[in-house]
Design a binder for these strands. Sequence first.
DNA 1: GACTATTTCTGAACGCGTTCAAAAAAGTTC
DNA 2: GAACTTTTTTGAACGCGTTCAGAAATAGTC
Lengths: 232, 232
Amino acid sequence: MSKQKKDTKTPKGEQTRTLILNTALDLLAERGYEKTTMRAIAEKAGVSLGNAYHYFKSKEHLIQAFYHRTHQEHLAASVPIFEKEGSLKGRLLQVLRLKIKTLEPYHEFAGVLFKTAADPHSPLNPFGQDAAPIRRDSIQLFETLVSDVKARLPAELKAELPYLLWLYHMGIILFWIHDRSPKHARTYYVIDRTVDLLDRLITLASNPLMRPLRKRSLQFVADLRALELAEG
Amino acid sequence: MSKQKKDTKTPKGEQTRTLILNTALDLLAERGYEKTTMRAIAEKAGVSLGNAYHYFKSKEHLIQAFYHRTHQEHLAASVPIFEKEGSLKGRLLQVLRLKIKTLEPYHEFAGVLFKTAADPHSPLNPFGQDAAPIRRDSIQLFETLVSDVKARLPAELKAELPYLLWLYHMGIILFWIHDRSPKHARTYYVIDRTVDLLDRLITLASNPLMRPLRKRSLQFVADLRALELAEG
DNA sequence: GACTATTTCTGAACGCGTTCAAAAAAGTTC
DNA sequence: GAACTTTTTTGAACGCGTTCAGAAATAGTC
């Protein structure tokens, strides 16, 4: 869990804050991002426009709360999966399907979410410092997923796998955002196929013959991550 | 070259259009995206605000012209590389370094560019229909790069490689956008390392033993591309 | 309970991207 | 060159996210 610096100083304030947040998430799910104006949120919450900005620095910061909330949902729903399913492939498959299902109600505005997320200056940027706590939480899900998996994996692969899987899962979400097929059938198809390929690739990479290339690749990934942490 | 449906009907109109475009690109390079307002563009071009919107449906459409222009620059500068360098690895290395160098002056606002690009609804979205002509041009660069390469490659790999390399090059750009190291040294480091890895991976994938996995993977990529073309 | 400091809240304002009815200019046809 | 159509151009307007000075409410202190 990431620590949260409070910007409310009284219970009343806290109450107003959550009221605004809940109203916002309702409207977002109902109308999408563009049509959910700050004015509409304030009005429906029975609060002045300026007051909404007192609790959330910007519309994007309001969205960050969404990130956090859906992640918590997903995390909670993932735990039972790990208990029933022991294989990496099975876990990945179910966790990813579940993720998409969790995000489902917000597909229409998830694009805008990623849009702002791709901007290095945005607080939503998943690679940036502002989102570091959420990112850590998010990667941790894959650490749990990998940690007690049955198959034997080379140590250096096992160390970097959570991060790589997190990146991969971001890619799946990106695909889903662009997927306008009915019920997002394509995304589920892509998940099935890529998880299968990934599983085979991991098996291949675990082969002793692959050791030099594997080491080289993973060392590079580790270097990158170190740089990321050092300077953002 | 992609066909361009004209939205100007007279020479005068064409003149005004390019005037606005040039002014916009100047201001963008000079001030960045946010500070380059439509009003500022119109004013500096000596044209009314509404008139700018007569020639460009939106600010984002104006940016599309930037995409196109820098791509043309990059393409022109790439041709000599192919004449001097025959190896896939060497070509990739030089083409990617060149791309970053070409984009250099626009780093500050390239983030915003990618930001809007990640939104499925944006005309800038590189995966969307509006950008299809530019995407085709862009992929074509890698087709040229791959076409007369010296090394022998499996047919099905050679067929999909341009698209995969294009995707890869998008990833490099994404990294560059988030790279705030001096002179973007990190991006150049990442290019060097990943090109090396990619080259080894391609060699590996070309091994007859890898045929089943290779076929399976590439068939999947081909399927995806077909879907993309069919429905966007 | 009065006085002060802090927090919560308001409403008007600003600059932005975008739209649109209508004026001005240019092209077309006789 | 007059009557028309089409294209180009204008300027005012709209709704948006955001900011801010200051009012109202609350908390803290004696």
